[in-house]
């Protein structure tokens, strides 16, 4: 319940935050704090310094740049949930976020924190994989933009280096027409989650997006990190999306041997859940 000691630094700008990271190489960034502080209270994490980026203006906000939706990393779940722009362009994103934790968690937690933390049971990693997002990362020597497929690298490990900051999440809106306001023209996404009864994190979760170039799907909650459901994507490739095809495709999507299990939810069960959730998510869209 009581964290170890640390020094606290609040960054006022992105450059200041990067500087502070340089000066405190073992520091951790503090965004919403809703993954980091629980870990610190159990002393599973004992960073000597925290750099608070929650008030860095460059990391906040939601905007549209042409056919891309840009979300600042320190934007809270609540801000995303209630954004008109997001409701119009990706209405399923607020629905997915609604399933994260509880209202207090969503008032504080940030999209960047969730992605950078890469908890194997977190929801948004699967969602951004399905959305084919790109992640903008700022380091001491400049910015890079990485593909979501190379972002998640292991359990709690991402493409963000120790001296870097995830600054923006870019989501392509290519499947929606640029001026679209009608939901039918919005990104066709669905997220299905099977929450853990106590932690509320995902025992398994599946996100699917039906885009112009086919289906993208990803799962979370069972592997080392969120991953694409390539078997499903291939099975549906070039096929008409009807319930029969979906039903037939959602079989043994992942090998239980690749998954984690515990006494409540074995790997085999989670693999089965992924089939069920993928089917349910797709059936909501076809």
């Amino acid at each position: 319940m009581y964290t170890a000691e640390f020094t606290y630094h609040r960054a006022k700008s992105l450059s200041e935050a990067l500087q502070m990271l340089q000066q405190n190489p073992e520091a951790k960034l503090l965004a919403g704090g809703h993954s980091l502080i629980p870990a610190m209270k159990l002393r599973l994490a004992t960073p000597p310094a925290l750099i608070d980026i929650s008030r860095v203006p460059e990391l906040k906000g939601i905007r549209r740049e042409g056919n891309t939706l840009v979300i600042g990393a320190a934007t809270t779940y609540y801000e995303i949930e209630t954004s008109d722009l997001i409701r119009q362009t990706i209405p399923a994103l607020p629905e997915a976020i609604e399933q994260i934790g509880d209202p207090m968690v969503r008032n504080k937690g940030t999209i960047g924190g969730s992605l950078a933390h890469a908890d194997p049971a977190a929801d948004l990693p699967a969602v951004v994989l399905a959305l084919d997002a790109r992640l903008k990362i700022q380091g001491p020597s400049g910015a890079k933009v990485v593909d979501v497929d190379s972002f998640f690298q292991g359990m709690f490990t991402t493409a963000v280096g120790q001296d870097e900051i995830l600054t923006e999440i870019h989501i392509p809106l290519s499947s929606a027409s640029p001026s679209a306001h009608a939901p039918t023209q919005a990104v066709r996404m669905a997220y299905e989650k099977f929450p853990h009864p106590a932690s509320r994190y995902a025992v398994a979760g599946v996100a699917v997006v039906i885009g112009v170039s086919g289906v993208r799907a990803a799962f979370t909650g069972a592997g080392e990190h969120a991953m694409r459901l390539s078997k499903l994507e291939q099975a549906l490739s070039g096929k008409p999306l009807d319930p029969q095809t979906v039903e037939a495709a959602c079989q043994n999507l992942v090998d239980p041997a690749q998954l984690m299990g515990d006494h409540n939810h074995s790997a085999e069960y989670r693999a089965h859940l992924i089939d069920v959730l993928a089917k349910r998510a797709l059936l909501r869209l076809v």
Partner: peptide, 11 residues
């Protein structure tokens, strides 16, 4: 609403 156990006073 926030959980005051998941926030430092400095924040």
């Amino acid at each position: 609403a926030v959980k005051s156990c998941t926030m430092f006073a400095v924040q």
